[in-house]
Computed example of a mutant assay.
Amino acid sequence: MGLTGWYVHHHGAGHLTRFRAVRRFLPGAVVVFSSLPEPAALPPATTWIHLDRDDDGRPADADPTAGGLLHWAPLGHAGHARRFAAIAGALGARRFDRFVVDVSVEVALLVRLLGVPTVVITQPGDRGDAPHRLAYSTAARVLAPWPAGTHPAPATRALVEVGGISRFDGRERVVRPDPGTVLVLGAGVAEPDFAAAASATPGTRWQLAGGSAATWLDDPWAALQRAEVVVTAAGQNSIADIAAAGARAVVVPQPRPFDEQVATGRVLADRRLAVVEPAWPAPHEWPAVLDRARAQHPDWTQWGVAGAARRAAEAITEVGA
């Protein structure tokens, strides 16, 4: 069992959400390292170490890639130095049996150089660059939160594809879809675009969830089930949550490094799991887009959500045991 470290990247809420989903099944104590604020409620036996940010000021002008060998290690940045010193200090003070990295090539390499085996969480898209290959080749496990064969696999025998990890895995479906209801998972959706789409589709009832404090839903499970159509970006957590709910969906991949969401959108379209649009549709296009989504019968069992969080925890626990 032992002690597990876990690095949670600060971009968006998805990395923290994935940690929470897996933590339910992960035995023993866990120390989390992140630039995110400590959540109000942590699971039992979980400690949070807050890290300084390393993306303020002008770090992009300070050779952060070390000539292409790394992704982010800006020269002369005090926050960057302090965050790495905090991780190194914690690993020097206690014996860690394993360390999950979601996601940072540099943290993965630091932890491995300090003698702790790493579990690196990979993501979709083109990850064949030198920094990614180095992080994967030094990892004891590379954990992929998608079903086997969904994306091109990193060239490592340590890969474990566990299925889509959703916080709603195991939750009972108790609400039936309500005809005419459209739920928009709102990260990155401009309110004028939302309003224009709703105005262009009379007879529908649109709900925006997320994107601001006013529309944020702590638990959107009932809303996901109630929606006749869910509109979302192609983030891993959003797709896994839609799969858990068995929902019909319109997916609009957002620009991300390494074409992460574009790659996921391509898989969803190929498997007929969602209507995939390359950009937010114009208002006059929405009636036809929603009609195509309503006509779908997606087999979301393909996404392997059932048991994925537990399988991830088991793969992590095997490291260093």
Rank of each mutant, 00 (worst) to 15 (best):
L134H: 11
A108G: 11
A190G: 09
T122I: 01
V174Y: 00
R127W: 15
V119H: 08
G115T: 14
R127Q: 14
V101R: 03
R83K: 05
D102T: 05
E106N: 03
P124I: 02
E191M: 08
D178Q: 08
D178I: 06
W146K: 00
S166A: 07
P117A: 07
V175L: 04
Q123A: 08
G211R: 09
A139K: 13
T215W: 02
S212W: 02
F168H: 15
P179R: 14
A81C: 00
P202F: 07
A135W: 02
R82A: 14
V175R: 10
A197I: 05
R98L: 10
A195N: 03
G92Q: 02
R82H: 12
R157M: 04
A190K: 14
A214I: 01
S137Y: 04
E161A: 15
G203T: 12
V160G: 04
T122N: 06
L134P: 07
T122Q: 04
R205G: 00
F168Q: 08
V101L: 02
T150Y: 11
G149K: 06
G79K: 12
G163E: 07
T150L: 10
F96Y: 15
E161M: 08
V120R: 08
T156A: 15
F194I: 08
E172Y: 02
R95H: 14
R98E: 12
L110S: 04
R83M: 04
A197K: 03
R173C: 00
L208E: 09
D178N: 00
A90Q: 03
R176G: 09
D97H: 09
A209P: 01
E161C: 12
G186K: 13
S137L: 08
A78S: 13
V184H: 08
L208G: 05
R127T: 14
T204N: 09
F194P: 11
V189T: 14
V160I: 06
A198D: 01
G210C: 08
A90Y: 02
G76V: 01
